[in-house]
C-alpha cells in the first residue's frame, strides 16, 4: 500500500513545530530523522534499554515503542533541550561529568532524561527508591554506580542538602 502521512504538530524542547510524518514512524524515527535530535538513540528498539527515552508531558517514555503520530499536541523534551542558551550544561549533566557517569555515552541521554523526570518531582528519594526509578536503563560500560551517584548528588544539591554516599 502507498505510504500514509499525517501532519503532526507538537512542542519540542520549547519550540512549536509541525511536519508531515509517515504513520509507520516511531517517535525515535521522527525525532532523529525529521528533527535531527540525535541524542535519542536507537538501542534495542523494543522498549528494554531506555536509550531512546524522552519526556512527553513531563513523563519518561521509550520513544522506540511510541508512534510518532501520538506526539500530536504533546510537549516533548530531549537532552538537547537541557542546554542553556549560551551552551552551558545543566546541573544533572555536570554531575554526570563530575562523577564519571559516562563512558561510551550511548545510554547517557536516556538516563539523564529519566533523571530529569525524577528531579522535577521535587522529592528526596531513598537509595532504594532511586534505584527502582533508574531501573529502566541498561548501561554496558559504567556498572551503574557512578550514574546513581550523579543523580543522587543532583537531587541532594537541589534540596540544598549535604550528601553522604
Amino acid at each position: 500500500m502507498s505510504a500514509q502521512y499525517k501532519l503532526v504538530h507538537c512542542t519540542i524542547n520549547g519550540k512549536e513545530v509541525e511536519k508531515m510524518v509517515d504513520v509507520r514512524a516511531s517517535l525515535t524515527d521522527m525525532l532523529r530523522n525529521d528533527y535531527h535530535l540525535t541524542s535519542v538513540k536507537k538501542g534495542c528498539e523494543v522498549g528494554e534499554c531506555g536509550a531512546c527515552n524522552v519526556l512527553i508531558n513531563g513523563e519518561a517514555f521509550n520513544s522506540c515503542i511510541y508512534l510518532a503520530v501520538w506526539a500530536e499536541g504533546k510537549d516533548i523534551r530531549t537532552l538537547e533541550g537541557l542546554l542553556s542558551p549560551d551552551g552551558e550544561l545543566s546541573d544533572i549533566q555536570k554531575a554526570f561529568v563530575e562523577e564519571t557517569a559516562i563512558q561510551c555515552g550511548f545510554c547517557t541521554p536516556g538516563f539523564i532524561m529519566t533523571a530529569v523526570e525524577i528531579l522535577e518531582t521535587g522529592k528526596l528519594y531513598t537509595d532504594e527508591e532511586l534505584r527502582k526509578l533508574l531501573s529502566g536503563h541498561l548501561c554496558r560500560c559504567t556498572g551503574y554506580e557512578n550514574i546513581f551517584r550523579a543523580v543522587k548528588k543532583t537531587m541532594y544539591r537541589r534540596h540544598g542538602k549535604a550528601i553522604d554516599f
Partner: peptide, 9 residues
C-alpha cells in the same frame, strides 16, 4: 511491571 518507562506507557 517492567520499568518506569513501561509503567508510563
Amino acid at each position: 511491571v517492567g520499568s518506569p518507562q513501561i509503567r508510563n506507557i
